[in-house]
């Protein structure tokens, strides 16, 4: 028990150190936080000058979408790219040579990613509320929170699995973005999929992002009828979570040589 207590204290310090590293790496902070805020502002100005319906403005629907986008970027993209670079520089190898338990290091990275995701979500809501007329609806906050927890687990596992499967550090950012940006588009993050062809909708259904974004957005959508969260959302995200965990545990390598 005392060992676990001591390990949790190590984890806490590891998370804080990862956070520190994140904030001191401007490019990571920019893509994770500043870019979604910029999108939120841009799209809200372009489309959201007047009310969309019933006193609600564009940001009511777009702020949650950008929150999901930023949260996934903070976990999926950051874990994949950050861990791959750390491995390439031999940081993981150094860690492995110390008595720090490997799970504490990995949990530290994940914990830091999730913490930054939480900050991003709060930032989107605050910017949306203060500048673009987003109204916080509290009825479904519990559901949104549950979806968020599952989404974070899924996208953390998937981020690490990219780093596990792709061994070349230079390739990881390309693969990550090539996966993440198209996935965002086919998941209705930027543009609603109402007029999209059926095959595109089906394609979006296969990937987990839509199943994160839709129930999360629905939780703050005053016009949504019926249940916010569906079983297919849980099942799809859960499936990808398991896949990510399997790939990561099966293929993850701490050695930089494996990546050259």
């Amino acid at each position: 028990m005392t060992v676990l207590r001591a390990d949790l204290s190590l984890l806490w310090r590891q998370i804080r150190s990862q956070n520190r590293t994140f904030w001191r790496t401007p490019v990571a902070a920019f893509f994770t936080l500043a870019l979604p805020v910029f999108f939120l502002a841009l799209f809200s100005v372009l489309f959201g000058g007047s009310e969309v319906a019933d006193g609600y403005r564009f940001a009511q629907f777009f702020a949650p979408a950008m929150a999901v986008f930023a949260a996934c970027s903070a976990t999926f993209s950051n874990l994949a790219i950050g861990t791959a670079f750390a491995r390439d520089q031999g940081i993981l190898k150094r860690v492995r040579g110390t008595p720090l338990p490997p799970w504490v290091y990995m949990a530290g990275r994940i914990g830091s990613g999730v913490w930054i995701a939480v900050i991003s979500v709060v930032a989107m809501f605050v910017v949306g509320w203060s500048l673009f007329g987003f109204v916080m609806l509290w009825d479904n906050v519990g559901v949104a929170l549950s979806v968020f927890v599952l989404g974070m687990a899924t996208f953390s596992a998937l981020g690490l699995s990219v780093c596990a499967v792709v061994r070349t550090a230079d390739t990881v950012p390309a693969v990550t973005n090539a996966v993440f940006l198209p996935m965002a588009f086919i998941s209705g993050i930027f543009i609603p999929l109402e007029d999209a062809p059926a095959w595109l909708v089906v394609l979006g259904d296969i990937f987990p992002l839509k199943h994160f974004a839709e129930p999360f957005g629905a939780s703050f959508n005053p016009f949504h009828t019926g249940p916010v969260l569906g079983w297919e959302n849980l099942a799809t995200m859960g499936g990808w979570l398991v896949l990510g965990m399997v790939l990561t545990t099966r293929f993850f390598n701490w050695d930089p040589r494996g990546s050259r």
Binding site: R20, V95, P99
Partner: peptide, 26 residues
């Protein structure tokens, strides 16, 4: 272990890195 070319988080200060990598030792 002192290896050649093992990286360390370059954005940390010397003191912070020593604290971080020393924390798990008894």
């Amino acid at each position: 272990i002192v290896l050649q070319e093992t990286g360390v988080e370059e954005v940390l200060c010397v003191r912070e890195a020593l604290e971080l990598y020393g924390m798990a030792y008894s």
